[in-house]
Computed example of a mutant assay.
Amino acid sequence: MFVVGGESLIDLVAQPLADDGVIRMEAHAGGSPYNCAIALARLGNSTGYLCPISQDNFGDHLLGPLHRAGVTPLMAERVTAPTSLAVVTLNARQQAQYEFYRSADRAFTEDGLIAALPAAPVVFQFGGFCPIEPVDAKAWLAVADAAAARGAMITLDPNVRPSLVADFESYKQRLSGFFDRAHLVKLSDEDLAALDAQKSIEQHVTELLRRPHCELVVVTLGEGGSRAFTKNGEASAEIYMPPVFGDTVGAGDSLMAGILTLLAEQGDLTPGMLGGLDSAALAKVLRFGAVVAGLNCAEKGCHPPTRDEVDAVLAS
């Protein structure tokens, strides 16, 4: 089973200002790890999701897409804390910008998270908000250690958001512990610039590949596509643009799910195999991830594609 840990929340998306001057909001289930879990399941993977879900109506709204995709909520007992919220605005290029109000996604204990882990996870994918708060970071790192002890590959998508962090230098120190545990790290060029704008992508990647376990680094470049690096090769891929474009919400999460899916199918999600991928193998993985991400962008909000939809594009 793939296990994805991290926040779920409701995206309240602002609609264009109406003639009556009223701002109207649409509610969409979201959160980077939540989106990734759904994308993994829709691609045909056995997937468990590790995050508390509120007892409120928004919690019901979050559970619906999980159940429809076939994701197993690993924390069966729902919490009384209200669902976390993200207020989303879209710029002129339909790219999402966020402000967050957190509650239920933090309503956990370290022991409770570890107790909810399956006995033998294949992959533990986490990131998003996990490193932001010191007490949360400690708990999530313990979960990663427990998952690794049970045989899981550790994969990380930190989704760096400086606006959410009161002390960014302390956050970077906590994030370093996450990097030290990960076999695969995915970041955006914006993430890397936030961490250190003076370093090139290549410098960041070289430092990550020197970490104790890191074997593969994927960097997304927005409209510029994506790049992948191991010590044995590197590759790049263009974005896949769907015939009809909605927005980019969940695109990076879908790309990560696509990459993990193909790596698992090829038997490469094991120590040594991952780091041995050459340029041709990396290009194939990136292309698959790009199609998954592009198909997600065919609708407004996060709507990851099925495996049949991805295969149809790859075959065309």
Rank of each mutant, 00 (worst) to 15 (best):
V185Q: 13
D167N: 15
E215L: 07
I114K: 13
L74K: 11
I154W: 01
I201G: 09
C297T: 12
M241A: 15
G294A: 10
L192C: 14
L117P: 03
E265K: 13
S84E: 07
A235W: 01
E238R: 15
G128Y: 04
C214A: 11
T220K: 09
V313S: 01
N91C: 07
L209R: 09
A119I: 08
D253E: 10
G246W: 03
F288D: 01
L286H: 02
K138A: 15
S32W: 02
L282S: 01
V292I: 06
A281D: 02
A120N: 14
E110N: 11
V217K: 02
T47Y: 03
H303F: 08
R150S: 13
H61E: 13
L277W: 00
K138P: 00
D20V: 02
F178M: 05
A281M: 06
A251G: 08
L74N: 06
R210I: 09
L40C: 11
K231E: 13
A142T: 11
L175R: 04
A69V: 01
C51I: 03
E309K: 13
M273F: 12
L113Y: 07
H61I: 11
W140R: 05
R174N: 03
D60F: 02
G64W: 08
F124M: 12
Q198Y: 07
K186L: 12
M153N: 00
S236T: 14
G112N: 10
E238T: 14
A228W: 08
D11R: 00
A280G: 00
Y98A: 04
L85H: 06
A104M: 03
Y34A: 02
V22E: 13
S54F: 09
L262W: 02
T261S: 07
V249Q: 01
V122A: 15
M153S: 10
F229I: 01
T155Y: 00
E99K: 13
A120R: 14
K172Q: 14
V71S: 04
L117Q: 06
R150A: 14
P65R: 02
T72S: 15
G250V: 08
D189E: 15
L269M: 15
R181H: 05
E169M: 13
E99H: 13
